[in-house]
Design a binder for these strands. Structure first.
Length: 636
RNA sequence: GCCGGUGUAGCUCAGCUGGUAGAGCAGUGGAUUCGUAAUCCACAGGUCGGGGGUUCGAGUCCCCCCGCCGGCUCCA
């Protein structure tokens, strides 16, 4: 037998290949707490897995983040066992651990009901209580086929046939058997806290031509407190739901009479949008962009030239006919910007040329995917197209990254996940140009000091791209920004510029959006701030509240004083009690309440209650300066 | 688009096995002038998502359609 060298904490041990990983516990002296598995180099193995490779070893202990997927994966098996016991005719799909929990897909004749879920959960508890060991076996493919044929697990058979290796692993617990790579817990009793969350249809292997299975979602943790905290977080997310806050704070609405996925921005939402747009334009002009405006529709032929009718048709609204010519609602802004480029002969001296537009586009999205502001059919992209020479690409990407990071940080987003997507199987352009462009994107990311992951083969056919996801206060990630190089469209429109040698060249084009769409970004912002916008964005920045009618003259004076400085202030002089007015202002999440009673009138000073419940006093000028500064500096 | 759930006043919801609609908040009117998260009284408000059917009778049962919610796929 081959022997393997394993390194743990500077220590080197040797074991025979094929020995189960559990042997390492004793060998490395890891009795208490008991590890659930090991990481060997990049691979995670459970205690039952025979060792096949050497390298650096790290034990994985219960309760650690690395152990969670193991726990959840086993929870998925427990779920499957429970379902098979209660619904023997159910066929198994797949059941992995996910970011937040786990799921398992089942083919059943009747979809699961809420009551079924409760029954399944109860049975899972029994299975956990019995501390059933999970036993790993490695068997030949024909052997596996025999087992799963006998059990009529047709989906598992499909999976087995696609596995390239000669041998596969299965896990048993009681009579339940699953084709599975692992890793798993040693026994079911280690699942201390779990909950089934929902059921939904899901196509086998995500392909709608395949049968639809029933997917049960759940989550699991090492202790009850963590589960409680997770469920609490779900509740918090519900409270922050932009669809709910959008209605409560009168920010926007979606009306059945208008149509699905089409947004009405109400005055309170519109003012937030205006602030974002003003900031956006100002910043773009400062950074050498030129503002353009383009129409919402164009002749269909334009979309033929651009290629959208070939590769984007299914996302476009149907054409309309006017004066016997077909027009098309625009799904993108690029063809228009390109035609502005083409409106005259271009020189290398003009480069880089940066056109930006808050351009409203319409895309057909299937009805089932629409979601509040986050997924709509009509939206405004904060779009720009940059035309440059190949040698300017890296510098331009760097500048875009610099702008993105600055822009997002102003809204309080400072953590990102960045993906660099490289050449897919089907692509246009030469391999050489792709490599150059990918290199330029990577170099710009590195120069900006932004850590990123490479998504191999995930680029669009026309060029590589950088996608940026922002992390909100609840730790959720949202894709907003995207930067894409395009080798295709300059070709299609035959774009040229004159080089210093008086010969025509083809420019490189970059598409980019920082916020993605104003609608989606607004949705993310609402949830991020839970509707309590920072002062510069708040639809109402200050409300002046009177204690009694006799305080109205001074309150009105203060209201006029603040309004005169451009502060968005309201006056609440109704004959209601102060506590009622405070409550109302609080519910509307207005940052500052100015309370005017006898004391304030007498001393000509302002008592200010903040949204956080703090009480401060200011001279009127002092308060005005404070607000103006917060607006100017966009203090979050 | 598909699977499941759901749709009663502006909002949140009640309405048992079919006997033709109710509450709280919001709105309007009045009273109260009250100092840090809901003062009292009155009034008004619904073709019960839309259409068709069963029935003496449908918000309640059946069928079709639409919207919304949770997923699948995709993306800003």
């Amino acid at each position: 037998m081959k022997s393997l060298k394993l390194i743990y904490n500077e220590r080197e041990v040797e074991v025979e290949a094929g020995v189960r990983a559990s042997a390492l516990i004793e060998l490395l002296g890891l009795g208490n707490p008991h590890p659930l598995g090991f990481r060997i180099e990049e691979e995670i193995v459970d205690l039952q897995t025979p060792l096949t490779r050497g390298g650096r070893v790290e034990p994985i202990f219960p309760g650690t983040p690395e152990a969670l997927p193991i726990l959840r994966h086993t929870a998925a098996h427990v779920l499957a066992q429970a379902v098979k016991e209660l619904f023997p005719e159910a066929r198994l799909g797949i059941g992995p651990a996910t970011e937040e929990g786990f799921y398992y897909d089942f083919d059943v004749s009747e979809p699961f009901t809420e009551e079924d879920l409760a029954r399944i959960e109860k049975r899972m508890k029994e299975i956990i209580k019995r501390r059933i060991p999970l036993e790993r076996e490695e068997i030949s493919k024909p052997e596996a086929e025999r087992i799963f044929t006998e059990r009529r697990e047709t989906y598992k058979l499909e999976l087995i046939r696609e596995i390239p290796e000669e041998r596969v692993s299965i896990y048993r617990q009681d009579d339940f058997v699953d084709l599975c790579r692992g890793p798993h817990l040693p026994h079911t009793g280690l699942i201390k806290a779990f909950k089934l969350l929902s059921v939904a249809g899901a196509y086998w292997r995500g392909d709608e031509r395949n049968p639809q299975l029933q997917r049960i979602y759940g989550t699991a943790f090492f202790d009850k407190e963590e589960l409680r905290a997770y469920l609490e977080r779900l509740e918090e997310a519900k409270r922050r739901d932009h669809r709910r806050l959008g209605r409560e704070l009168e920010l926007f609405s979606i009306e059945e009479e208008v149509g699905p996925g089409l947004i009405l921005w109400h005055p309170k939402g519109a003012i937030v949008r205006k602030e974002i747009e003003d900031f956006w334009r100002e910043e773009h002009l400062k950074r050498g962009y030129q503002l353009v405006y383009t129409p919402h529709i164009a002749l269909r032929d334009l979309w033929k030239v651009s290629g959208h009718l070939d590769f984007y048709a299914e996302n476009m609204f149907a054409p309309m006919e006017i004066d016997e010519r077909a027009y098309q609602l625009k799904p993108m802004n690029c063809p228009f910007h390109i035609l502005i480029y083409k409106s005259k002969k271009r020189s290398y001296r003009e480069f880089p040329l940066r056109y930006c537009e808050l351009g409203t586009v319409y895309r057909y999205e299937r009805s089932g995917v629409l979601h509040g502001l986050l997924r709509v059919r009509g939206f405004t992209q904060d779009d720009a197209h940059i035309f440059c020479r190949e040698d300017q690409l890296e510098e331009e990407i760097f500048k875009v990254l610099d702008l993105v990071v600055y822009f997002l940080s102003v809204f309080g987003f400072r953590e990102y996940q960045i993906y660099l997507s490289t050449r897919p199987e089907k692509y246009v352009g030469t391999e050489e140009i792709w490599e150059k462009a990918e290199g330029a994107l990577a170099a710009a990311l590195e120069k900006k000091g932004l850590p990123y992951e490479i998504d191999p083969g995930e680029g669009v056919f026309y060029g590589p791209k950088i996608d940026l996801k922002i992390r909100d206060v609840l730790g959720r990630f949202w894709q907003c920004s995207t930067i894409q190089v395009d080798f295709n469209i300059p070709e299609r429109f035959d774009l040229t510029y004159m080089g210093p040698d008086n010969r025509p060249y083809r420019p490189i084009m970059i598409h980019r959006a920082l916020l993605g769409s104003l609608e989606r970004f607004f949705g993310v912002l609402i949830e991020h701030y839970a509707g309590a916008f920072p002062v510069w964005l708040a639809p109402v920045q200050v409300v002046v509240l009177t204690v009694a009618d006799r305080h109205e003259p001074f309150a009105r004076e203060m209201y006029d004083f603040l309004r005169g400085s451009g502060i968005r202030v309201e006056l609440d002089a109704r004959g209601e009690r102060l506590s009622y007015k405070i409550r109302e202002a609080q519910v509307k999440k207005i940052p500052y309440m100015v309370i005017v009673g006898d004391r304030e009138v007498e001393e000509r000073r302002l008592t200010v209650r903040t949204r956080g419940g703090e009480n401060l006093t200011f001279a009127p000028e002092e308060f005005r300066e404070k607000i103006l500064r917060e607006i100017r500096e966009k203090i979050v």
